[in-house]
Design a protein around this nucleic acid. Sequence first.
DNA 1: GTGGTCTAGACCACC
DNA 2: GTGGTCTAGACCACT
Lengths: 137, 137, 137, 137
Amino acid sequence: MEFRIDRSSGLPAYLQLVRQVREALRLGWLGPGDRLPTVRDVVARSGVNANTVLKAYRELELSGLVEARQGSGTFIKAGLGSTDPEVMAALRTRLAEWVREARAAGLDTEDVDALVRSVLADEDGDQVTAGEGVAVR
Amino acid sequence: MEFRIDRSSGLPAYLQLVRQVREALRLGWLGPGDRLPTVRDVVARSGVNANTVLKAYRELELSGLVEARQGSGTFIKAGLGSTDPEVMAALRTRLAEWVREARAAGLDTEDVDALVRSVLADEDGDQVTAGEGVAVR
Amino acid sequence: MEFRIDRSSGLPAYLQLVRQVREALRLGWLGPGDRLPTVRDVVARSGVNANTVLKAYRELELSGLVEARQGSGTFIKAGLGSTDPEVMAALRTRLAEWVREARAAGLDTEDVDALVRSVLADEDGDQVTAGEGVAVR
Amino acid sequence: MEFRIDRSSGLPAYLQLVRQVREALRLGWLGPGDRLPTVRDVVARSGVNANTVLKAYRELELSGLVEARQGSGTFIKAGLGSTDPEVMAALRTRLAEWVREARAAGLDTEDVDALVRSVLADEDGDQVTAGEGVAVR
DNA sequence: GTGGTCTAGACCACC
DNA sequence: GTGGTCTAGACCACT
């Protein structure tokens, strides 16, 4: 697994790490027993400080998703999204098609993002996971 | 326009405000000449501090999207690459269908979010606007 | 770099800071890679509040001139159309001569300032950077 | 006399008005007995609010430069820079030459401004009237 | 110890 | 009443 930290996003680095592990679990890229990259590894590849990585891993451990084993690494303990991989793949394919259409219509990534967040917010006042929703009267 | 602040998202409140204005512009909910809610209004409705709102509005002003007029309010100055509303609506409808399917398959909001981010990240290494991306080897 | 804040000038302190950094860039006193004084440093030396300094640095960052790195400081990211230092020095010398003359003729600083602004304003209706201009019919 | 207000300069509008009157006095454009434009006039031409103009005129009156005569207008009471007009003109000409040179060397207005402020600041620690000075160690 | 967010409250400038 | 500046101080994120 490879982490990508965007220093300009405003989201704290350690939360970006936590989030990326959770997403990998949801998507089935990671599962119980898998080993997370070592702290040293993440430091080398992403440039963040070791304490930042430790903080992220600690947080994951506290939420029960991960288990640190002294001397051997950090391992996934529990899964997250237990959706059937095939169903997931099918949904993904259809989503990708939609994105292609959107691109063709001239939308850039931020447009797409805005639309997605807006649609999710519309579902009867549901919370959008990333944080907000917009409503205009 | 109504703002929603999610204190648990990790994203700074003022950036949530900035983002929501930008999204409203992208979606065509707001356009040049429109007035943003007054600082005091936002304070009353969202509970954040006045300085936080001021900071958000100031960043919007510096980026050229908005113009503050002392004594009268803050106004939209420029649009943000707005796509044809009809095309937008069509895309939105199709997206909403997809989301319904995803829901039916048991995905929760965080799953949907992960999928979207993953698909956007896949498009030839493009950056995801919200900040990160996940790549698994 | 050392900042000087004049509380009686009417110009907001944070703008004085922004301006002084810009001027230092223009004059070649500062260049890419250089580190600005820490926020705490400026606070200690100039007496303004930390938030005021932060605000100035943030504006510089948004305008792309500077980059803040948490834990290590704020650094110059880009130059500002720097003219050849020798040419600059020559112009400076000649200007200094002119100022000496003006002083000898009895002009005080405010007179000199008024003259400069007036000459700059005269150049085909160009805008004076500091804000105003005077035209008498 | 014509006022020019720059809303983006950061300097309060009423101070811009005050400053412009003072400059006109310094440069000899205005002298004792001259009448300032009426408040109504300034409002019409510059777009600022009447109270803002009144505040500026009041401030000028408090500093003894101007005198308001009920029903007839506001008049210059005292001069400021009493430098010989011919000397002033000569200095102005030489300054204009210098500015032309600077322009030819590629400096823009902000560069020129920075140089001037820097030279004025250098005169043995003298205060620059507009507010600041920059010193780099 | 570095930058950054947020709050609370005072006071200013402008309409 | 509108936006804007500044202060003071608490707490967070990162090196």
